[in-house]
């Protein structure tokens, strides 16, 4: 294959499958930022895998020209972890909604932060369960009234960034789907980070949270800045308005151990061949 090498364009990373998302959904911006990031990095499409859970946000893998895994509600992170540990040669991203990652999958979020596999997570936060049509999510405001909770949840929302920091994530950032260029930069940094990168994205749901259309007026881009210490990072997240973006934490920490890196898919089988007589010997009395 000696085609002339053109630098890839973001459009090359779109699969052509038509998204199911509503008009104006923030997730379009996330898709745009993701494909820009891939193009910027010039990733070979077949070496990228996007793993997701269930939700409107969870539909994103099929819209990207890459390998994809659309699994179970809440379980994107363990699937992505298994895939990355087995296949260190792949660039693995996980994507999900606020319900997916901070509610049903919250345990995986905490422990994936600790484990630090070399994966980039994108949490599309719309403060609502979009796919199931408008129930409060763990990031919903206490007074967000909905059919299932007519008075609103009445409890404080989860702060995903703070939870990530407390769980010792090695890269923590927030972006906004309405600013796909800044978001693309953050995703590039997340992919280049050798460990688990948590990127929360403010991604409005105009259908069930029409008031989020106003977010674009209030988001303070770049307000979050890489902190020197964990304490500082936490203090920054607590002090900054929820609608602020930027990379707040970056730390060098050994990523979760992986299998040896195969040169190609074909090599996988030969890499596994091992002599196992030593195991049999261990059963001799």
């Amino acid at each position: 294959m000696n085609r002339p090498q053109q630098p890839p364009k973001p459009a090359d990373y779109k699969s052509g499958v038509h998204p199911v998302w509503c008009k104006g959904c923030g997730d379009f911006g996330v898709l745009a930022a993701m494909t820009r990031a891939f193009a910027h990095l010039g990733l070979p499409k077949e070496q990228v895998a996007v793993v997701s859970g269930i939700g409107c946000s969870g539909r994103i893998p099929a819209y990207v020209a890459a390998y994809g895994f659309h699994g179970l509600h809440g379980r994107a992170l363990p699937v992505a972890t298994g895939l990355k540990l087995a296949r260190p040669d792949l660039t693995v991203l996980a994507a999900g909604g606020d319900g997916d990652i901070y509610s049903i999958g919250a345990a995986h979020f905490v422990h994936t932060c600790r484990r630090n596999p070399d994966i980039t997570l994108i949490v599309m936060d719309n403060r609502v369960y979009g796919m199931t049509k408008g129930q409060p999510s763990p990031t919903s405001e206490p007074d967000f009234a909905a059919a299932l909770q007519p008075e609103g949840p009445g409890v404080p929302p989860v702060d995903g960034l703070l939870l990530a920091l407390a769980s010792r994530a090695s890269f923590v950032a927030r972006g906004f789907s309405g600013q796909p260029n800044e978001l693309a930069d953050i995703i590039v940094a997340g992919i280049e980070h050798p460990g688990f990168a948590v990127i929360e994205v403010l991604s409005p749901c105009p259908t069930f949270r029409p008031e989020q259309r106003e977010w674009k007026r209030h988001v303070q881009a770049g307000l979050l800045q890489p902190a020197k210490t964990l304490e500082e990072a936490m203090a920054q997240v607590i002090a900054a308005p929820a609608l602020s973006t930027g990379i707040v934490w970056r730390e060098e920490r050994a990523p979760a151990p992986m299998m040896p890196r195969p040169e190609s898919v074909k090599e996988l089988a030969t890499m596994r061949a091992r002599e196992l007589a030593w195991i049999e010997k261990s059963f001799h009395p």
Binding site: G71, L77, G82, A86
Partner: peptide
């Protein structure tokens, strides 16, 4: 165990 089975599916999807 939810993580365990899903990790297994992820690794197997990758070919292991």
């Amino acid at each position: 165990e939810l993580a365990a089975i899903n990790m297994v599916l992820g690794a197997s999807f990758g070919g292991l």
